[in-house]
Each structure stands twice: as C-alpha cells, then as structure tokens.
Design a protein around this nucleic acid. Structure first.
Length: 308
DNA sequence: AGCCAGGCTCTCG
DNA sequence: CGAGAGCATGGC
C-alpha cells in the first residue's frame, strides 16, 4: 500500500464538495473518505481512497492506493485523474471575488467556501451519466447508474469492501439493449448509451478534443450524437470537460435557483451568466447547492452541513 | 393512486 | 415548424 499527499489550492473542502451533490457511483463518499477505482490508460485498475488531513485554508489530502503493488506510472496517472476530478488545482479566486461583490451571492461564501463545483470523474463517464440524468430525478438516476456500474463494471476487492471500476464503452456495447433495459434504463436511454459506446469504441469521437472547441461548435458536435440535446451537451461541457463558462440553463434546478435568487426566467439565464465568463459554472453551482440546501433545511435534514 | 422528476426523439398535423 | 406522446424508477 502506498500513500501520497496532494496539496490542493486553498480554500478546499472535500466534505463540502461531496455533500453539495453526492458523487455518482462508483465514486463513493462516506463522510470522511472518497473511495474510487481509477482505470489507467494502460488498463490497470487502481483502487484508492482520499481523505482531507489539512484544514480548509491550508488543505492537504492523503491519497492511499489500496492495492498491494501499483506500477509507478499507473500511480502517477491515477493521481492526475483524481486531482482533476477533485479540482485540486483549480482556482476559484476570481469566482469568489465576483460573489463577494454581489449581495445575492455573498452570503454563500461563508458556509460553502472551499466547495468545488460538480465535476465528472472522467469525460466519458460524465457523458454517460448526463444521459442517464435526463428528465428523471437525481435520486432515480443515481440508482440506475449504480446498477449499471455494478452490472457491467469491474469489481475490485479491497479488504471487506468491493469497489467498482466504471464500465468501459466496450463493456456497455457488448451488454446489448436487453441487458441495459434490465438494469433500469428506458428503451431510448439504452439505445443512446449503446450508440455512444459504439462511437467511442470505434474512435470516431474524441471527447477531450471536443473540450477544446469553441462552445457553440462543441454543442453542435455533441447534439449531433443520438440522445444528446442542449441540456445534456451543456451539463457535460461544464461537469465533464470543465468548460466553466457554460451553464446548463435549461436545467430545472438551475432555473429554480436563478428564478429564486435573481427573478430571472429561463431565457434570461444565458445572457446573464455571460458576464461571469469562466466563473459561470462554479457560481451557478453554488447557487444550486445553496437553494437545495435551503429546501433540505426546511425539510429538517440539513444536518450534514453542520460539520465542515 | 397518480403525478412529477435536473430531456430527448419521433410522429403528426 | 410546433405540439404531443412515451419513457424508466423512486418519492411524495
């Protein structure tokens, strides 16, 4: 077992980050550690867990590789992927400055300071998840994603625990329509995932490359995929490719947040967030979590937020 | 029990 | 073109 330390930019709170929105399976946060299997480009499965050992203003993360022996190259790659996912090197300074200057947003900076915006573990996983998220509630989507991963991903035993690697596109392509339907996907979504997987397997699509296109072009490429509309494309750009100038303005939760905090309607959101540039997604995400938290507190289950 | 939930595609007029 | 139907499962 090997241990590494990762020093994120301050402020950073692992806890706030994964309580703001629970991570999608197979990432698991237990209140203290984030558990995950990373699949390297060489195909090694690297199980790990990460916990925060330094405070929010001087953050330090301890990453434990949970396999007896991991090649050095694989370990380095796993740490890079993890760091990207955690946004450990991303800078929220300018987002915070904007929020500080806005009386609507300023109150969020105390309670949520150090929370990183929702990010997919990898681009491919992020696009698959985004498709499953369509229309249904997050709760339902999480349950379907869990079944998809447990059914088609690779289990990795770690002591008493079993972690899973997210299924590869070829795993999904091989599973076929009936299998996907039994895992809880609708006919349409099963077909969307199959189609996407086949496209990825045949290397007709490079999602990393899409991330480098101008936003409008990227949206065109993405919405040309079967089952990907504007909502999915924008959610994926923001969370999967970390294009933070993009906000999924059609999203129900985002619309509620902007309506409640700024009184804006759906069509006013995109022009409004343009002023935030590359800070748009982090700020919109803070608004989303803030509004959801308020709802949860009203329902009497906001306790998770008390501990930081 | 029935409707809605962080949409999309297909069909029809 | 715009409107409408159908869809998966879980919660209220």
């Amino acid at each position: 077992m090997r241990t590494y330390e990762l020093e994120p930019r301050a402020p950073f709170s692992l806890h706030l980050t994964f309580v703001g929105t629970e991570p999608a399976f197979p990432s698991v946060y237990d209140g203290r550690y984030l558990w995950r299997v990373v699949r390297t480009s060489g195909g090694e499965l690297v199980p790990l867990r990460v916990g925060q050992i330094g405070p929010r203003e001087e953050p330090l993360l301890r990453v434990e590789l949970l396999a007896p022996s991991v090649p050095e190259g694989a370990a380095e790659e796993a740490l890079r992927v993890l760091s990207r996912f955690l946004c450990a090197q991303d800078d929220l300074t300018s987002a915070y400055a904007r929020m500080e200057a806005d009386p609507v947003l300023r109150p969020m900076l105390g309670p949520l300071r150090g929370m990183m915006p929702w990010t997919a573990f990898t681009p491919v996983e992020g696009l698959m998840d985004a498709i499953v998220f369509q229309q249904i509630s997050l709760r339902v989507a999480f349950s379907i994603i869990r079944r998809l991963v447990k059914g088609l991903g690779q289990p990795v035993r770690v002591g008493e625990r079993v972690l899973y690697a997210f299924p590869r596109p070829e795993d999904i392509a091989e599973a076929g329509r009936e299998r996907l339907r039994k895992l809880g996907l609708s006919r349409n979504k099963a077909d969307y995932l199959l189609s996407l997987s086949k496209t990825l397997v045949s290397s007709q699509l490079d999602l990393e490359a899409v991330g480098k296109l101008p936003v409008e072009e990227a949206i065109k490429v993405l919405t040309a995929l079967r089952g990907v509309g504007r909502w999915t494309a924008e959610l994926f750009l923001a969370t999967g490719l970390k294009r933070w100038e993009v906000v999924p303005a059609d999203d129900l939760g985002i619309r509620r947040a902007f309506a409640h905090l700024y009184g804006l309607g759906r069509d006013q959101i995109r022009p409004f967030v343009a002023r935030w540039g590359g800070d748009a997604w982090p700020i919109a995400y803070y608004m989303l979590v803030w509004c959801e938290r308020r709802q949860r507190v009203l329902k009497g289950s906001g306790l998770l937020y008390e501990q930081v």
